[in-house]
Design a protein around this nucleic acid. Structure first.
Lengths: 113, 113
DNA sequence: CTCCTGTGCTACAATAAATGTAGCAAGACG
DNA sequence: CGTCTTGCTACATTTATTGTAGCACAGGAG
C-alpha cells in the first residue's frame, strides 16, 4: 500500500518544478478523468462506485489513482459514509469551471454549422 | 444529428454520444497537453516549435495530434506566418480559465502549509 | 452466528497513448 | 546553389489506461 502522508512525495505533478503553480495545476487537471471527476462531484458527494458509473464506467484502477491524486492535492476528501466530496478548495476550483457548461453549449452549436 | 463537416470525423470526442456537450469538452480538455497548449497561446500566436518549447519539450507526435484536435474543434487555427493562434471561440474558452491562475497560487500556498 | 450487500481498493494481463529520436518536404533568405 | 525555419510524420520504446477479476471490511437482515 502506497502510504504517503505528505502530498507529492514520490511523483511530483509535472510542471511543479517550474515554480509556476498553474503549470502543476494544468498537468493535474490534464490527466484523464480528472476534470470529469471534479465535474461529477459538483452537486454533492458520490461513492467511488457511483463515481465510476457517472464517469462512463471508467476502470477502477485509474479511478482510484485519480482519487488519490486529487486527495493529495487537497481538492477532494473521503467522507466516511458519504463517499467522495469536494473540499472547500475543490469547490472553489469547480466554480471556476461553471461557465464551462454554457460555453460547451455554444461551442457545440457552432461546431454543427 | 446534423451534418458535421470536418469536426469529429473518425474518432469522436469521448462523451459526445451522451448528447451533453460539456462531456465532450471535458474529454477534449482532459487529454494531455491540451489545457497547457491553450494556456500558452493566451498572449498570442506561437509557432509549433515555440509551442513545443513552451510546453516543456513535449514530443512532436502528441503535439501535432493535439493541434489537429484543437483545430477540428475550432479552438485554434494555423495562421500562415504566425503559427498557431486562438480562434474567437478559443479566446472565449481561455477567458474561462483566467481565474485559474489566481486559484493555482492560492492552491499552491495552501498545499505548502 | 451466517449470509447477504455495498463500500474502498488492488492485481494483472491486454490495449491504447505518449515519448524520444530522427527525418521529410516546402518555403524564405543569402 | 546552401542554409535556415516552418509544419509535420515514422517508428521503436516507454508509460498510461483499460477490462476483468477479486480482496478485506463494514453494516443489515434472517
Amino acid at each position: 500500500m502506497p502510504k504517503q502522508a505528505p502530498a507529492m512525495k514520490k511523483r511530483a505533478v509535472r510542471g511543479s518544478r517550474t515554480g509556476r503553480p498553474v503549470m502543476a495545476l494544468l498537468d493535474l487537471l490534464g490527466r484523464r478523468w480528472t476534470l470529469r471527476i471534479l465535474w461529477e462531484l459538483r452537486e454533492g458527494p458520490l461513492t467511488s462506485r457511483a463515481l465510476r458509473t457517472a464517469c462512463d464506467e471508467a476502470s477502477p484502477t485509474v479511478m482510484q489513482t485519480r482519487l488519490s491524486e486529487l486527495r493529495e492535492a487537497g481538492l477532494i476528501e473521503l467522507l466516511p459514509g458519504d463517499g467522495y466530496g469536494l473540499t472547500g478548495l475543490g469547490q472553489e476550483l469547480n466554480e471556476t469551471f461553471l461557465p464551462l457548461h454554457r460555453f460547451a453549449e455554444r461551442w457545440s452549436r457552432q461546431m454543427q454549422d
